[in-house]
Design a protein around this nucleic acid. Structure first.
Ligand SMILES: [Mn+2]
Ligand SMILES: [Mn+2]
Ligand SMILES: [Mn+2]
Ligand SMILES: [Mn+2]
Lengths: 218, 218
DNA sequence: TTATTAATTTTGGTATACCTAAAAGATTTT
DNA sequence: AAAATCTTTTAGGTATACCAAAATTAATAA
């Protein structure tokens, strides 16, 4: 198998398994990779053969230790590049993902560690996602979704779960960016929309938006 | 054809044609790409079809305007990355080529132009090779090979024509790096080896080495 | 528990990018 | 101008990564 093919499978298996906590179905993988289920079956058999995954016919797939290590390497490279593009090269957080999709395949530890070192080994990328360290260790946090916020509390924006350009641009427009401090004024009973203040400006967001924003109580 | 395949052909056709001044033989391309002549014939027919080259059966191949533009883009990306890796990220000139071979395929003008801008739009890479500007224009120079140097003259090292790691490390050991100032002391009649001083230290180099160093009279 | 639906695998393809060996064409030497 | 040699092309073939359609298996509803 081509190395880039392997990497794309492992990365997506990792994400779809919610950081390795559950097995992944062929269907979900096929959707994510935008290919047919037939192709997924074929590829998984080969990845099993290569000992990157344990593929149990008609049941599901999970990463082996080796597969997890590979996946974490890809995730690290992706997020280090996203952070470098945003922090050091002036790209917006809605632009970095696409470029990082390509840069993540360039395997050179010296390069990635140098970029990380220049930035002081950041633990989170521009979307608030954790960056595995050189050994693959991920800093875990106890963040919650903004949709679970309580009235009168204050929160700090720590990340997003939707990385689409449309969503990120929407957030930027309302200054709902990483680090922003939010005060919850009202939560509408009817549709769970939230009225909050951010940078002294009042903002009304739908539950759909709130579900996609990760915050920390302050 | 896969975009990376196309790019590797165009880049190598460009280099083998000495910046587009002559047609390229299938043999030379096959050698450079380390593939069989049969595969080259096949690929060239497709590249002709795609209007990247003019391929004349049993005669030779040259780039079209479109092919040249593509090739210059690849060369620009390669050399900008080599320069960025060396100047901004602390890599040695013998390390940068390998990494740039992968980075050169990532097509994002904003990224490349940003890197170039950070470095003040350099015109030459760490090996002294010219970097095409965003429009594909190359600064031309009137450098000569050190093997054509004259006794008692002073020269400044401007580049190398051999990019092998072994050669670059050899040069580094003797401080024969870009920008070094050389005074020619003696040229041995017998084998054209050169005795020169560099940073006040006397160095003896063979003709083979001198042929691979590009200098400018000062 | 059987029927229906949904997910997965099998089967039989395609296109790309390579290959070797043989044939054809071009160039150089005698 | 032949013969010898070198280069290029053709013919036939492989591995990878995908596909659609059919067959199978699993999950859900009746
Ligand atoms: Mn991303
Ligand atoms: Mn991210
Ligand atoms: Mn190079
Ligand atoms: Mn170079």
């Amino acid at each position: 198998m081509r190395i880039e093919t392997i990497e794309n499978y492992l990365k997506n298996i990792y994400h779809l398994s919610s950081n390795n906590t559950m097995v992944v179905s062929n269907q979900k993988l096929a959707d994510k990779l935008a290919i047919s289920p037939a192709s997924v079956t074929e590829a998984l058999r080969k990845l099993h053969e290569l000992k990157f995954v344990v593929y149990e016919k008609s049941y599901g797939t999970r990463l082996t230790a080796q597969g997890t290590k590979e996946a974490l390497g890809i995730v690290r490279r992706h997020r280090i590049w996203e952070t470098y593009l945003a922090k050091e090269l002036g790209f917006g957080w809605h632009e970095v993902h696409e470029i990082a999709e390509e840069l993540e395949h360039i395997k050179n530890d010296k390069l990635i560690n140098k970029l990380a070192q220049i930035m002081g080994n950041p633990a989170f990328d521009p979307h608030g996602d954790p960056i595995p360290d050189a050994k693959g260790k991920i800093m875990k946090s106890n963040f919650v979704k903004l949709s679970e916020a309580k009235v009168n509390n204050q929160y700090k924006v720590m990340g997003v779960t939707d990385h689409s350009i449309a969503f990120l641009k929407y957030l930027e427009k309302h200054q709902l960016i990483i680090g922003a401090v939010l005060s919850i004024k009202t939560i509408e009973e009817f549709d769970n929309s939230i009225i909050l203040t951010c940078k002294k400006k009042e903002v009304i967001i739908s539950n759909k938006v709130a579900e996609r924003i990760i915050v920390e109580v302050i």
